[in-house]
Amino acid sequence: MTLIKANVVVQLKSAVHDPQGETIRHALEQLELGQVESVRQGKFFELTVEASSKEEAEKIVREIALRVLSNPVLEVFQVEIES
């Protein structure tokens, strides 16, 4: 068993309204920080898991991301296993 690092990004589904992202975009506009067409915000998680292989680590992290880190009704996630 080794310690494996995994990164998880959770974002709202593309069709779901993102008031926070909108607010950030609006702020950028007011601060005149360039022409930003759209902003979608999300969450980033770093996990360190004990697993026998990268495949097993990914399986564990996907389960955690689906059941705990994201709300599957509104959000999607991406998992990246660090080598």
Partner: peptide, 12 residues
């Protein structure tokens, strides 16, 4: 039927 959920923005 899930994608039909709306997200509200009370400040708006």
């Amino acid at each position: 039927k899930r994608p039909t959920v709306q997200v509200g923005d009370p400040f708006l």
